[in-house]
Write a protein that binds this DNA or RNA. Sequence first.
DNA 1: TTGACGCGTAAGTGTTTGCTTACGTATATT
DNA 2: AATATACGTAAGCAAACACTTACGCGTCAA
Lengths: 108, 108
Amino acid sequence: MTRERGPDVFTAISHRARRRMLDLLLEADRSVNTMAGQFQMSRPAVSQHLRVLLDAGLVTERRHGRERRYHLVPERLGQVRDWISHYEQFWDDRLQRLQKTLSKRSGE
Amino acid sequence: MTRERGPDVFTAISHRARRRMLDLLLEADRSVNTMAGQFQMSRPAVSQHLRVLLDAGLVTERRHGRERRYHLVPERLGQVRDWISHYEQFWDDRLQRLQKTLSKRSGE
DNA sequence: TTGACGCGTAAGTGTTTGCTTACGTATATT
DNA sequence: AATATACGTAAGCAAACACTTACGCGTCAA
């Protein structure tokens, strides 16, 4: 049994700072120092948050000279969307209309 | 200023058990004992988790005799969906096709 | 009224988080 | 070679978390 280690995605995104980090990586790959400039905490703290995101599979790192560029892996957020989608019917009537449109279109 | 109290939604849903509780409440309102039967932890532990969900505004409680029926408030999950929707374009090509379909339809 | 039921809460405890400073290592610069 | 840069990691610590058992309080049943 290969143990799926570490924090799951839901835990990883529970911290506001980590969510912001993902948001930053959505724009572009970034080095640690670049990201650290956006936060008040120390650079090692940022590193540790990135580690959590890395363990959760939400980012990858690529060495680039002496930098480490972090890169977003948005696919892993799919499980969050999947879970939350069960609730959508209750608060997103826009999506409901969309779904209706689609089922008409596909002739189901 | 009425202070938006307590743990935020992202923290509230970070725990697997609490997510399962919401899932249960999606089917129907439930009393604490009914829910506790679905978990291995003690009944007070379940109560405490429900408290977190309550503080996050994800559920409400209604007294019903000596029971307390918990009721889902899915609207609060909107902020999760809002956040995650920024990432959808990258991993949900089904949605992309959907959006294309829609924009064609609306003649943009 | 007496007792069982349904529940919240207090108190105690081990574990995990989130941060800091100090340090080590690899790469680049001079 | 010596130094600066970019980073991870170790160590330490306070706070938060997740649980437990013990208890108290309102409600329904006999």
